[in-house]
Amino acid sequence: MIDDSRFIRCHTCEAVNYDNIEEELLCRRCKCQIHQPLYISYHKTWAYLITAIILYIPANLYPILITKKFGIEKASTILGGIIHLWEAGSYPIALIILVASVFVPLLKFIFILYLLISTKYNLHSSKVDKHKLFYITEAIGPWSMIDVFVVIILSVLIHFSGVQIFPGVGATAFALMVFFTMLSALSFDTKLIKKEDI
């Protein structure tokens, strides 16, 4: 029987490699870096995560969508838009937007925070579960972009001389927020799960 913990999977080419904990490691097949020294990956993940959390604030406070009707501007934030949709009776869409642009980013923050803290302080939980959690975090990442794309599409279609819709500051902040959470998830090293202390 071969010991599982001595092997690591290369993210780039999926090859099975011998693991060595301390140093940086190059894949035997694609010669790509499998992991940097662990503390770099750990701090990088924190840095991206904090950037994303900071950007989450303007993304929710500033209007994501501005409607201009015959010269009168009306701004709406993400939550305002969802409430408006709910009141108008389009429940499915309100739910989609609520899940994609409020819950998914929050869930990602919580997951990455949990992974970082639990690996740092060596909380006793299943490693397989942590790997699954990381996999889910990576998979749900891009879906929060829905809201930004919807705003872009609406701003193209509703572009008449009398009525116009255009993206506000919130859209930029939101797009950047998604970008940084994805970077944060990508820079998290699954090796951190395996290794007990940094």
């Binding site: 690591i8 099975v16 699954t190």
Partner: peptide, 14 residues
């Protein structure tokens, strides 16, 4: 010989 192994991308099992 290492090519005969594969690691699950979801739960990291060899």
């Amino acid at each position: 010989e290492l090519d005969n192994f594969i690691i699950c991308k979801k739960c990291n099992t060899l």
